[in-house]
């Protein structure tokens, strides 16, 4: 891939990801937050493409943008009266939170910059889907199965939690 195009794409996507993520973190309107999140997710998917992770990028778009985000939007709609929406996502104690987060970000970036990461010599771009499929059904078969069961249990749990109204004594009726 052409290095310059690669760099331009990277910086564009990076700005998009970080900018929209920052918007998610500071915006006062929860619906706008949710839409900014779409841009973050799509940007992250773009970054994944740059990292030669085609399959993961596709999954990211499908699962996050198609699934998770719709779920979040539903929750927003169900839990707030629409008239409240404008003020429904206020921040509290923003300044101390911001200071702590900035310090933390500085530390993380310092580690990222100063770390002696091993770098491989030839960086290649090759399709990964087949390799991931093989890997999931051989080397990572057990975690794969465990996660399948976990999803089943989690979804049932979600249904149970969301359906039952719990009265003040704590038992479901």
């Amino acid at each position: 891939m052409n290095t310059i195009i690669y760099a331009v794409l990277f910086y564009l996507l990076a700005v998009m990801v970080v900018g929209s993520a920052a918007y998610v973190a500071v915006s006062k309107n929860i619906v706008r937050c949710a839409f900014a999140l779409v841009y973050t997710f799509i940007g992250v998917a773009g970054l994944f493409v740059l990292l030669s992770a085609d399959f993961i990028a596709a999954t990211q778009v499908l699962v996050y943008v198609g699934g998770t985000l719709v779920l979040i939007l539903f929750a927003v709609m169900l839990s707030s009266r629409i008239s409240d929406v404008k003020i429904s996502n206020r921040s509290v104690q923003f300044i101390p939170g911001f200071v702590v987060t900035c310090c933390f970000a500085v530390i993380l970036i310092y580690i990222a910059v100063s770390g002696q990461w091993p770098i491989k010599d030839v960086i290649e771009f090759s399709p990964t889907t087949a390799a991931i499929g093989n890997s999931l059904l051989s080397r990572w078969l057990l975690p794969f199965e465990v996660i399948s069961i976990l999803i089943l249990v989690g979804l049932m749990g979600a249904v149970v939690i969301a359906r039952h109204k719990i009265n003040s004594k704590g038992d479901a009726k």
Binding site: P96, G97, V100, T101, C103, F104, I107
Partner: peptide
């Protein structure tokens, strides 16, 4: 929860510093 998380994070930052 956010107080707990925030304080834990601040503690981590202070430790690193």
């Amino acid at each position: 929860l956010r107080h707990y998380l925030g304080v834990a994070l601040a503690g981590g930052v202070i430790l690193v510093i």
